[in-house]
Amino acid sequence: MKTLELSGSRYEIGYGYGVQAREYVWKFIDIFFSKLESLRINKEAAFEISGRLEEYVKEYSPVLLEEVRGLADGADKDYEEILSLNCIFEIPRIAGTKEAHYCTVWGSVADGGVIAVQNLDLAAEYADLLHLVRIVSDDGLRIRLQALAGMLGMMGMNQDGLVFSGTTVSSKKVKYGVPKPFLGRTILNTCSTAEQAVDCLLKAPRTTGGNAMFLDAVGGFYVVECSAEQCAVIHPEKQHLFSTNHYTDGKLTPLSPTDDIESSKARLERIQELFSHTDRYDFETLKSFARDHDGNPGNLTICRHGDISTVSSVIFEPSKRRMWLATGLPCRNDYQEYSV
Rank of each mutant, 00 (worst) to 15 (best):
G74N: 08
S38L: 15
F221V: 07
N119L: 09
V63G: 00
V114E: 14
H293F: 09
Q118K: 14
H101V: 05
C103P: 10
I302V: 10
D259A: 13
E262F: 12
L130Q: 01
D260Y: 05
T207E: 11
K265Y: 01
E37R: 15
G250C: 05
S84W: 04
F214W: 12
E5R: 12
G74F: 07
Y126R: 02
L162S: 09
D78R: 15
T244I: 00
G14Y: 14
R280H: 12
Y56W: 12
G70R: 10
K203D: 14
Y79M: 08
V340K: 08
D292S: 06
Q146G: 15
L252Y: 05
G51W: 13
K43E: 15
K98N: 11
R185I: 14
A124T: 02
N245S: 09
T208W: 12
L188W: 13
P62Y: 12
D216I: 05
G74K: 07
F214V: 14
I135E: 14
W106R: 01
V133C: 05
E48F: 01
F214Q: 12
E55G: 04
W26N: 15
A217R: 15
N296I: 10
Q239G: 01
E99C: 00
E195T: 10
S7V: 02
S50T: 11
E337R: 15
K180D: 11
I49R: 09
K238D: 06
L85S: 11
F316H: 07
D30W: 13
G107L: 08
Y56P: 07
F164W: 00
L274Y: 02
E23L: 06
F32H: 14
D282S: 07
E273N: 04
P62T: 10
E5D: 10
S319A: 13
E54L: 12
L152V: 15
I31P: 02
D78F: 10
H293M: 02
G298K: 03
Y60R: 09
H305A: 12
V57S: 11
E125C: 06
S227T: 15
A45Q: 08
N119V: 11
L39C: 06
L83F: 15
T3E: 00
Y281L: 13
E90G: 14
A290E: 07
N119A: 07
S171E: 07
Y176I: 04
S263M: 04
L53K: 06
Q230H: 10
T167R: 07
G51D: 13
L286M: 01
A228E: 00
P181T: 05
